[in-house]
Design a protein around this nucleic acid. Structure first.
Lengths: 349, 349
DNA sequence: TATAATTACGAAATCGGTTTCGTAATTATA
DNA sequence: TATAATTACGAAACCGATTTCGTAATTATA
């Protein structure tokens, strides 16, 4: 079966091209009886309007772009689900671009998005991104942009994030309350706003604690991009002469590496080292030992960001810069930081 | 800055529209000096050709669709990475659709893909999908389709899968070799070809074992769609009068549920129950206890499927039906099935 | 009943590129 | 030097829909 154009289809059902087009778009100019006929015949003859011809004429693509660093991370997987749920309900299509945390990739995608390919962009910026010039370009082309999770200061648009500072604070405080005296933050990159905030929160709690008890100490380590390098850095921290008795892992990948490192080095969690991780890992509960997490509302972050984006798409005068949503994460206490071994766990070991 | 059309841009640089178009597409009709000028000015004036006008005329969308059940699963996350890597290198865009394992969703996406929106489709079919009529429609519209991971019998096109039958066999055999006498397969859906094959392999190993030793037994349970229902079914299996001493979990989600259930019920892995799971879980190594997995080459499955799809897109006479790639999974033995507790693990506990 | 307003539809312009085809200028061949 | 071939570019048709605008038929108002 060859593809039908509107012209061929109109001829086949003995109507004019414009009547068909209007009928399918539910125009008030067409009587309902004619509409029904057209819709029925379109179904029967399998006529699907060419979306690009339509996009060209209407200057709407019914498509949004999602630009994010990776999709391997469970956070981003969940966020995509949230975005997709909203897009699907709105009848929009979703293009996915992975920057792999490289600015050049991100810029190339953004530039392409300025061509009219998409009606809006959701972005979680790469680790390398410091300037917002590529985004400004988009904005001046009237393509709305919404940040989710990782935003960029110095660029005014909507953002949906979690309470990173507060959570950094809570994580540190939690470790201290559970008896840690020397806590360390393992962060993935200083450039990222979220890591900076988490670190700032961590520091705030640490300083507060030190002001009350001078025997408490702490440190911050920024891990390299490369997997092996990060692994080595973690090992160094753990084997240091004043190695920490508590660690805050600023990302899921860091937490996994810490677990692997402690296992290799024979450091016992939680006896020798307590761990809290920023993570949405589904398996946190069943890790060895179960992992205390700061769990982000990943799905809702994606969903909310998409909802805001659609508001801007549907109402061009909508001022994105006013929307700054904070969806709180929550601390889920488990064995890795509390040392508590639950009854049923004991039985099973 | 308003969006530039090719007409405006051509006038601005004092050339004809066709010269500009040809220059940007690197036509042999245009001298290299003119090309350079045009490209430089396009960069300077930020002229981006409208992709939809181009698609309309050229009848190419430079876009592929990926239709899959979920992206929460780590298998699909990795597969998307593989697909994206190939697409990006080819200069293609990737539309993602999540069927949530519902046939109706899948069909709606596929129907839309037949409109010329995409040049090709990669699909991992939903659990509910039994008929291939929606795919046939696509095929007759000359949109190439490639299955990855989950395929559909009765529809002739390329597929990239893993050795499911063999792995089902290996998983069962591994449990038996490690002393299990009553093994159970927990499968997510009988309709799925991959689960069927895994189950068939499991059965083959089981029957072979029984023929040598009649005291060996086994069973198969098909879990419901709903999370709570599956959880209850797993609990039932574990509390049954002749509950198994070995379990093969046919999917990542099942493995997680088994771990949670055993923890609740106080069943000790691996002492009372040995577990093998089909999974690409990054955290398998650090679970409590570490999980023996049949690990699929998820990234490569996505990558290979995309490569085959592009062959068909670039060469329409390419016969997809001849391509049936099997990328083997491998058994990664860990504590959950062997009972071995490694030295460093002991230290850390 | 005559006129105005409304309804239902069709012809043609349009969206922004690409491509065919024609032509002037240049280079190669006889 | 005359003719053929090649090169470099421009005018206009075209892709397949949408939308404006015009018109005939119908209904409402005076």
């Amino acid at each position: 079966m060859k593809k039908l154009t509107i012209k061929e289809f109109a001829r086949a059902i003995n109507m004019s091209v414009s009547t068909v087009s209007k009928a399918l778009r539910d125009s008030h100019e067409i009587s309902s009886s004619t509409k029904q006929k057209v819709v029925a015949m379109a179904e029967e003859l399998q006529y699907h309007p060419n979306p690009y011809a339509s996009s060209l004429r209407r200057k709407k693509s019914k498509t949004i772009a999602v630009i994010l660093p990776e999709v391997a991370d469970s956070f981003f997987s969940l966020a995509i689900n949230g975005i997709q749920a909203v897009a699907e309900q709105k009848g929009y299509h979703v293009l996915i671009y992975l920057s792999h945390d490289k600015y050049q990739n991100e810029k190339a995608f953004i530039d392409d998005c300025g061509s009219g390919r998409v009606d809006g962009v959701l972005i979680s910026v790469s680790q390398e991104t410091v300037s917002a010039s590529h985004l400004r370009q988009l904005q001046s082309g009237n393509v709305p942009v919404v940040f989710f999770d990782r935003s960029l200061s110095g660029f005014e648009t909507a953002s949906v994030e979690t309470n990173d500072f507060e959570c950094g604070y809570i994580a540190a405080q939690h470790l201290l309350q559970n008896g840690c005296r020397n806590i360390s933050m393992l962060s993935i990159s200083g450039c990222l706003s979220i890591c900076q905030k988490r670190t700032d929160g961590f520091l705030a709690a640490l300083e507060e604690a030190i002001s009350k008890d001078e025997t408490i100490s702490g440190s911050i380590t920024e891990l390299g991009d490369k997997h092996e390098m990060a692994m080595q850095q973690i090992a160094d921290v753990l084997q240091n002469s004043n190695s920490p008795d508590g660690i805050v892992a600023s990302a899921e990948s860091v937490a996994i590496q810490v677990y692997l490192a402690t296992s290799k080095l024979g450091v016992a969690i939680p006896q020798q080292l307590k761990v809290v991780a920023f993570s949405t890992l589904e398996t946190a509960e069943i890790l060895n030992p179960s992992l205390t997490t700061i769990t982000q509302p990943a799905f809702d972050i994606g969903k909310t960001a998409a909802e805001i984006l659609f508001k801007a798409i549907e109402k061009p005068q909508f001022t994105l810069a006013d929307e700054h949503i904070i969806l709180p994460s929550r601390l889920v206490k488990r064995q890795s930081s509390t040392g508590m071994v639950f009854a049923e766990m004991t039985l099973s070991m």
